[in-house]
Amino acid sequence: MDTYKLILNGKTLKGETTTEAVDAATAEKVFKHYANEHGVHGHWTYDPETKTFTSTE
């Protein structure tokens, strides 16, 4: 398992979190669920070199 990072740049919520996942697709599902639960619906990007997802509203 690898550690993946999420950076949230929402209108009402900003911050970072991490998750352990078997691959990027699994981490993306976890992070999108997390963002949706916190009302963040933004544009998603992923940097495979740093294993970092960013959601920007």
Rank of each mutant, 00 (worst) to 15 (best):
M1H: 10
M1C: 11
M1R: 10
D2C: 14
D2N: 14
D2P: 06
D2H: 15
D2R: 09
D2T: 14
T3P: 03
T3R: 08
T3H: 07
T3S: 07
Y4E: 02
Y4N: 02
Y4H: 02
Y4R: 00
Y4V: 02
Y4D: 02
Y4M: 01
Y4Q: 02
K5H: 12
K5A: 04
K5Y: 12
K5G: 03
K5N: 06
L6Y: 03
L6I: 03
L6F: 08
L6G: 02
L6R: 00
L6H: 02
L6A: 03
L6W: 04
L6P: 02
I7S: 03
I7N: 03
I7V: 12
I7Q: 05
I7G: 01
I7C: 06
L8A: 02
L8N: 01
L8F: 11
L8M: 11
L8Y: 11
L8V: 08
N9M: 10
N9K: 10
N9R: 09
G10N: 05
G10Y: 13
G10L: 08
G10R: 03
G10T: 09
G10E: 03
G10I: 05
G10D: 04
K11L: 15
K11C: 15
K11T: 14
K11M: 14
K11G: 09
T12Y: 15
T12V: 11
T12S: 11
T12M: 09
T12P: 03
T12C: 15
L13G: 08
L13R: 05
L13E: 09
L13C: 15
L13W: 15
L13D: 06
L13M: 14
L13N: 08
L13Q: 09
K14D: 05
K14W: 11
K14M: 09
K14V: 11
K14F: 10
K14A: 08
K14H: 12
K14L: 07
K14N: 09
K14Q: 13
G15V: 15
G15H: 14
G15Q: 14
G15F: 15
G15I: 15
G15C: 15
G15K: 14
E16A: 08
E16L: 07
E16P: 03
E16C: 15
E16Q: 10
E16G: 07
E16N: 06
E16T: 12
T17M: 15
T17P: 02
T17Y: 15
T17V: 15
T17D: 02
T17Q: 08
T18E: 09
T18A: 06
T18M: 08
T18G: 03
T18L: 08
T18D: 04
T18I: 08
T18F: 14
T19V: 14
T19F: 11
T19I: 15
T19R: 04
T19H: 07
T19N: 02
T19P: 01
E20Y: 12
E20P: 06
E20R: 13
E20F: 12
E20V: 14
E20I: 14
E20S: 11
E20K: 13
A21C: 07
A21K: 02
A21N: 02
A21F: 04
A21G: 02
A21Q: 06
A21W: 02
A21D: 01
A21Y: 01
A21R: 01
A21L: 01
V22S: 12
V22N: 09
V22D: 07
V22C: 12
V22M: 13
V22K: 13
D23A: 03
D23S: 07
D23H: 03
D23L: 03
D23V: 01
A24T: 07
A24P: 10
A24S: 08
A24Y: 13
A24L: 09
A24M: 11
A25F: 10
A25I: 11
A25P: 08
A25E: 13
A25V: 09
A25R: 09
T26I: 07
T26C: 07
T26N: 08
T26F: 07
T26H: 13
T26D: 10
A27V: 01
A27T: 01
A27M: 00
A27Y: 00
A27P: 01
A27G: 00
A27C: 02
E28R: 05
E28A: 09
E28L: 15
E28P: 00
K29H: 11
K29G: 08
K29R: 12
K29S: 10
K29L: 12
K29P: 02
K29D: 08
K29N: 09
K29I: 13
K29T: 10
V30L: 11
V30N: 06
V30E: 09
V30R: 09
V30C: 07
F31I: 00
F31L: 07
F31P: 00
F31D: 01
F31W: 00
K32P: 01
K32V: 08
K32C: 07
K32M: 11
K32W: 10
K32S: 05
K32N: 05
H33M: 14
H33W: 10
H33P: 02
H33N: 12
Y34A: 02
Y34H: 04
Y34T: 03
Y34M: 05
Y34N: 01
Y34C: 05
A35E: 07
A35K: 01
A35V: 08
A35N: 02
N36G: 08
N36H: 15
N36R: 12
N36D: 13
N36I: 13
N36P: 02
N36V: 12
N36Y: 14
N36L: 15
N36E: 15
E37D: 10
E37L: 14
E37F: 11
E37V: 13
E37G: 07
H38C: 11
H38I: 11
H38S: 07
H38G: 04
H38W: 10
H38A: 12
G39H: 07
G39L: 05
G39P: 00
G39Q: 07
G39N: 10
G39Y: 05
G39I: 04
G39R: 05
V40S: 04
V40H: 10
V40T: 04
H41I: 11
H41K: 11
H41R: 09
H41S: 10
G42N: 03
G42F: 06
G42A: 05
G42K: 02
G42W: 14
G42H: 04
G42L: 09
G42T: 04
G42V: 04
G42D: 04
H43K: 11
H43V: 15
H43C: 14
H43R: 10
H43P: 06
H43T: 14
H43F: 14
H43M: 13
W44Q: 02
W44N: 01
W44T: 03
W44G: 01
T45K: 07
T45E: 12
T45R: 06
Y46L: 02
Y46H: 00
Y46C: 02
Y46I: 00
Y46G: 00
Y46W: 03
Y46V: 01
Y46F: 08
Y46Q: 00
D47R: 03
D47Q: 06
D47W: 04
D47C: 09
D47E: 08
P48M: 07
P48I: 08
P48N: 06
P48A: 12
P48L: 06
P48Q: 09
P48F: 07
E49G: 11
E49L: 13
E49I: 10
E49Q: 11
E49A: 13
E49K: 12
E49V: 11
E49M: 11
E49D: 14
T50G: 04
T50R: 05
T50V: 06
T50F: 06
T50M: 06
T50N: 08
K51H: 07
K51V: 01
K51P: 00
K51S: 03
T52V: 07
T52G: 00
T52F: 02
T52M: 03
T52L: 04
T52S: 04
T52P: 00
F53R: 00
F53D: 00
F53H: 01
F53W: 05
F53S: 00
F53T: 00
F53Y: 06
F53Q: 00
F53C: 02
T54L: 07
T54Y: 12
T54V: 08
T54H: 07
T54D: 03
T54G: 03
S55R: 03
S55N: 13
S55L: 15
S55T: 15
T56I: 09
E57V: 06
E57D: 08
E57H: 05
E57F: 05
E57C: 05
E57M: 05
E57Y: 06
E57P: 04
